[in-house]
């Protein structure tokens, strides 16, 4: 039993990371209806910026703040430069453009920082909390805490600020939002900036566990997709809960299903995506899309 609980705790820790990247995906999807295939790569790029700063002697937390600011600006810039020209174009075009961005960012990181793996400092202390028979690493607690904090801040932003109100208006109906004087273009860019910032957090959280290299986020991206699909692509809360469920499911499957083991765990998100698409396509918390011809 203790072993089982231990696996669940480990799964929650992994799930929190998937949740944070899923949150970034959902943020962009909500505003623009775009699923950003480059989200993981942008997070990886941000993590490299943090690594460069830390390697240059900047303290970890200051480096994090700088990274988040740079990521925010970078996300806005990408929306303005790369995504803007294809705004309103069919899904196929936009998906291809974000895939192009994926390839470009991945290769650019490889060019700048080479493909050798780098050690990334863990911001949390190494010890663990003993709760009866279960040990909870401080780093797991830290990850969960950070993701909870990000969730809380986003909630405050969306529900209790004027900017957030404008963003919700744009997400609901861009044309009406424009008519009441909201600058839709800039709001969309703001959405991308926010998503890049949230993604950067997930990159920084994942790097100490996976080692930093340009392909670090490819697997995480699949888990995040599964989390967003499970929770519903239009529900931030769903993305977080979906992420936690995916993390736990993956850890339990790896530990208790002999056939899956640690190498085939990447099949778990694939199964989850397929199952959700077949049984409840809008996800647990999403709204079913209704289309008008």
């Amino acid at each position: 039993m203790a072993g089982f609980l231990q696996q669940i705790v480990t799964g929650l820790g992994a799930g929190a990371i998937y949740a944070s990247l899923a949150l970034a995906l959902v943020l962009i999807y909500q505003f623009t209806g775009i699923v950003n295939f480059a989200q993981g790569e942008l997070a990886m790029f941000s993590t490299y910026i943090a690594w460069t700063l830390v390697a240059a002697g900047v303290s970890f937390w200051l480096a994090l703040v700088i990274t988040l600011v740079v990521s925010f600006a970078g996300g806005m810039l990408i929306e303005r430069i790369v995504i803007r020209p294809v705004e309103g174009a069919p899904e196929l075009t936009i998906v291809i453009v974000t895939v192009g961005l994926f390839i470009f960012v991945n290769a650019a990181a490889g060019w700048i920082w080479t493909f050798l793996i780098k050690d990334f400092p863990n911001p949390f202390p190494g010890g663990a909390l003993e709760l009866g028979a279960v040990t909870v690493n401080f780093s797991t607690l830290g990850v969960l805490g950070v993701v909870g904090l990000v969730m809380g801040l986003l909630y405050l932003l969306f529900q209790h600020t004027k900017i957030g109100l404008g963003m919700r208006a744009v997400a609901t109906n861009p044309a009406s939002a424009r008519l009441v004087g909201i600058r839709v273009g800039w709001t969309l860019a703001l959405g991308w900036g926010l998503a890049a910032t949230v993604g950067a957090v997930s990159g920084v959280l994942v790097a100490p566990l996976l080692f930093l290299e340009p392909n670090m986020m490819a697997g995480v991206l699949i888990y995040a997709f599964a989390a967003a699909t499970l929770g519903g692509f239009d529900s931030p809360v769903g993305a977080v809960i979906g992420g936690l469920i995916v993390g736990v499911a993956e850890t339990l499957a790896g530990a208790y299903v002999g056939f899956i083991g640690s190498d085939l765990k990447i099949g778990v998100p694939l199964l989850i995506i397929l199952a959700v698409l077949l049984l409840r396509p809008q996800g647990l918390f999403g709204r079913a899309a209704v289309e008008r011809a």
Binding site: V35, F37, I266, I273
Partner: peptide
């Protein structure tokens, strides 16, 4: 399963398949 929905999900599923195939 993938085609029951819009093309976006096909992209997701196919990406997952491509990543899953190597360990398989």
């Amino acid at each position: 399963p993938a085609m029951r929905l819009r093309g976006l999900y096909l992209a997701l599923v196919t990406l997952a398949i491509a990543i899953f195939l190597v360990p398989l």
